[in-house]
Write a protein that binds this DNA or RNA. Structure first.
Lengths: 335, 335
DNA sequence: AACTTTACCTGAATCGATTCAAGCTCGTTT
DNA sequence: AAACGAGCTTGAATCGATTCAGGTAAAGTT
């Protein structure tokens, strides 16, 4: 026997219309009624039936968030930011983690469309543009997260990865490093190529000559980092780079593990190391890791705010929001 | 102009009742009708309006999951397991991270009750029993995750923390350690006291004399681990314990950082270290961390399965599912 | 031939919150 | 005294999918 607005109305001695008004526009109701209704709600433990509300008023109180790697702390932080903003608007988040699997991506998009979410945030992996256009034609506002896409016609919130790459390599150069290796891949991930582009720009603009080599990986995981580190160390010592820039902190943690285990390499004395994302575990590594911080919570917050605005105003024009990255210096580059 | 079941009915030349039957019990409809309706749905790009469905049929296609620490990889894994199970049932997950804040916990519970979720999974922090009982009286199935609670009248899925504590300390003793410190806190978290109880049991049952001291912390974070490690190291060397058992891997990572930074202590030679949770970053630490693994995905999967079963059968009796923990040995204890 | 059964289909009632035209009370204006 | 307006309240219509009593036609049974 769930309690309906009718029960509340009876208890408060008013009509259902008045109860609804108390809930939605309390200023148009006498304070006497407001009080009686509020009390009745309290006593009965009434909660609005969102399904009925959604059906009649056509407003949804959920926003979908599809994330491509739920295990990566960076995305957890982004979600956390979105949550903060959402809960202050009384909005709940439907969460879907695709683990870089395009078929899961599709499943979630269908599911969320059935739910008629108010809006959709997505950190896309595969080619979801077709799906997303269907969303838009259903009138569901959509914002891309962590992916800049001027051409797609969707709003986006991301960080300037090129600037981030530049920051990282400039920092290494300032620290006196001259032989730098970029470790990352695969190269069909936009963020990877952007970060590398930034690194290249920094190397070319430097006042001194910089050697920049690329050490490709097949994924951005700790394991791949370990493997890449081991490969580097098979070289004769004088061919080692004197600094590594990893495309994200998971890779960097793996590299670090390879380098320091068994006391083989002194970090940063022999090789400096910088990552990307400022993963909370990176600060806690054996040698605390320098990194490029993305304002992850802010990204989530902003994305949610934009999606709500676009949901409210269907005429709104897609906009690209780009945040600047921030250099975080720790021991791994400041020997 | 969203497309409704009525549009589909017109297009297919049948009644709305038949369309609904095609959607929900296709075996009671002639194959001819099924085909015509299916095609009409396809052509019109119709998707069910879940709000109307929920309102009338009272069935919900979402399950709420309230997590107490969204930053902890352990919970991310649990959520991932729940997701897997959920999406195979066409169910979406409403996600709420409380960050150990009881007021956020309350907000989410209200929000999810408004949404009339099919069921609720919760890794509770504060005292939510009152709230939860209200859930149950609304007929919403509820399962506690990562918290055993025979008395509460709710089902639960968790790991035997006492056994885990025992495993950890037995392993340390077998490795020849005799002066063991348990690092953890606060002690109003059930998992902490359970893990300590297991540690105590192992120490008491050992064939040799074991000194077990308790080093309390005010939270289970990396920072607290670092602080606890620093405190330990202020003692004269001969008063150091020869092994540490941290109540979770975040603490252990912090301890490790304190111990090894600057080459102060050899791990495991001088002090062995074991954690709990088998956090993926623990395997990648400077000294790979031994730990007690919880079958986190399995926990999530199972919890979701149970909550769906209970939602389907309101007469069902609450049951406690307890998984065994598993010892994972890495370098930090096997010098 | 009269009946029962089977296999489908139909369409109105229903879920609960919102909305809005219409109504009611009082105090104010003419 | 009649007319008016401000301030509130009321209750029926509505959203779209589901359900179910009732209906129909064809097949099966006696």
């Amino acid at each position: 026997m769930p309690i309906s607005i009718r029960d509340v109305a009876v208890r408060a001695g008013v009509s259902v219309g008045t109860v609804s008004n108390v809930l939605n526009r309390p200023d148009e109701v006498s304070s006497d009624s407001v009080e009686r209704v509020t009390q009745a709600i309290e006593e009965l433990g009434y909660v609005r039936n969102d399904a009925a509300r959604k059906l009649r008023a056509g407003v949804s109180t959920t926003v979908g968030f599809v994330v491509l790697d739920g295990q990566n702390p960076f995305y957890n932080d982004v979600v956390r930011g979105a949550e903060d903003e959402a809960s202050s608007h009384g909005i709940a988040i439907l969460y879907g983690n695709t683990d870089e699997d395009p078929s899961r991506e599709k499943v979630y998009l269908d599911l969320f469309r059935e739910q008629q979410v108010r809006g959709l945030l997505i950190a896309p992996y595969g080619d979801v543009m077709t799906q997303l256009r269907r969303f838009r034609s259903s009138g569901i506002a959509t914002v891309l997260v962590d992916r800049f896409s001027a051409d797609s016609g969707f709003s986006s919130v991301s960080v300037d990865s090129v600037a981030g790459g530049r920051l990282a390599v400039e920092h290494l150069i300032e620290g006196g490093r001259r032989r730098i290796a970029f470790v990352g891949g695969p190269f069909d991930i936009r963020q990877v190529t952007d970060r590398l582009a930034g690194a290249r720009a920094a190397a070319e603009n430097a006042a001194v000559h910089i050697e920049l080599e690329v050490v490709p990986t097949s994924a951005m995981t700790v394991e791949e980092g370990v493997a890449a580190g081991a490969r580097l160390l098979t070289r004769p010592r004088r061919e080692w780079p004197d600094a590594l820039f990893a495309a994200n902190d998971l890779l960097a943690l793996g590299l670090l593990q390879s380098l320091v285990s068994g006391g083989r390499v002194l970090v940063p004395d022999e090789i400096a190391l910088i990552g990307f994302d400022d993963n909370p575990f990176a600060a806690a590594a054996a040698v605390p890791l320098s990194s490029i911080r993305q304002p992850s919570r802010m990204i989530g917050r902003t994305a949610l705010r934009i999606v709500l605005e676009e949901a409210a105003d269907p005429e709104s024009i897609p906009r690209q929001t780009v945040f600047p990255p921030e250099l975080i210096v720790r021991r791994s580059t400041s020997g």
